[in-house]
Amino acid sequence: MSSTLYALAAIALWATLASLGTALSHLPPFLLTGLALIIGSVMSWPRVLHNRRAWAVPGRTLALGVYGLFGFHFLLFIALRHAPPVEANLVNYLWPLLMVVLAPLLLPGTWLRPLHVAAAMLGFSGAAIAILGARGAGSGAADAGYWGFLPALGSAFIWASYSLWTKRVAAFPTAAIGLFGLVSGVLALLCHALLEPQAALSTRDWLLVALCGLGPLGAAFFLWDMALKRGDARQIGILSYITPLASTALLMLVTQRPLSWTIALAAFLILSAAVMGARIRA
């Protein structure tokens, strides 16, 4: 299986995340994050039973993995319940662009060029249109204020910075992602027990949580890591810009939102900015 197919499989799974998160928005966010991440870690357990060193990573690497998996998903699930889901999803998918913009700050030996700045302005213009368009649509979540978009922007920052910082730690086996998910999931469930009201899950809830854990919060991470280890990271990174369009299209279908000009324009601007950033060579 080629690196491109691994990457496309991961992208297909990630495209379902916002729709699943919206369908489960009635669950406490720590609970949803914890259950899904623990379920997602299960597929690495057989490898660990065969080779216990598969989870032998330095503490710094483990902390980075927990920061990425726990922080990203918790903030995304918060955003999906406190802001209009389609617009929040578009803001979250600024992360490919943020990877380009933040690279000079987080990776030694990289620089920010004028085209990087232009791409950043284009992308943030798309995010602004998504937010203002939600406000103008009169949605109850949007009328409550703009604060629900802050977690979406925070999740984008966390995933971008996590992706860049993985280049500054020692290489780790793909199975170690299961350890990141397990520790993150246990931490989330602990936060749920201390900070959130208890919730009873229906059979439908358990099915959707299992799909979320095994798919976008499980297999997708392993597939993406295998793609990066086998192929050209620049080419694979460009493929990730399929995700916001696929995710937004599926989310609009699930929520039965009509395609407005603001959503279409925001998606076009964010995708254009991301592709522009990816085509700039260091």
Rank of each mutant, 00 (worst) to 15 (best):
A88G: 08
F74S: 00
V57R: 08
L80F: 09
Y67I: 15
P58W: 10
E87V: 01
N92H: 13
N92G: 04
R60N: 11
L80A: 05
V42E: 10
W95A: 02
L69P: 04
A88P: 01
L97D: 14
P58T: 01
R60H: 13
R81T: 13
G40N: 11
L49C: 12
M43R: 11
F70Q: 08
R53S: 11
A88Q: 03
L80Y: 12
L75I: 01
A88D: 02
P84G: 06
H82V: 11
Y67E: 03
L80G: 05
G68L: 04
V48G: 08
N51M: 02
A83T: 09
P58S: 07
R52T: 14
R52K: 14
F72D: 05
V66T: 09
R47T: 10
V86N: 02
N89I: 04
A79W: 03
V66R: 02
Y93W: 13
W45I: 15
G71H: 01
F70D: 10
G71D: 14
F74W: 10
L80Q: 00
T61N: 11
G68V: 01
F70C: 14
A79H: 13
L62Q: 09
A88L: 01
F70E: 06
G65V: 05
L64G: 14
Y67V: 12
I78Q: 15
A54C: 10
H50R: 15
L90N: 02
A63F: 13
R81M: 03
L94P: 06
R81D: 09
L75Y: 02
Y93D: 05
R47S: 11
I78G: 09
F77C: 00
L90I: 07
S41G: 15
L76I: 13
H73P: 03
Y67K: 05
G68H: 06
L64A: 12
I78Y: 00
F70L: 14
L62W: 09
L97S: 06
A88W: 06
F77I: 02
L64M: 09
V86F: 02
H82M: 10
F70K: 09
G71T: 15
H73K: 07
P96Q: 07
Y93G: 04
A56V: 04
N51E: 12
R47Q: 14
V86D: 01
L75R: 08
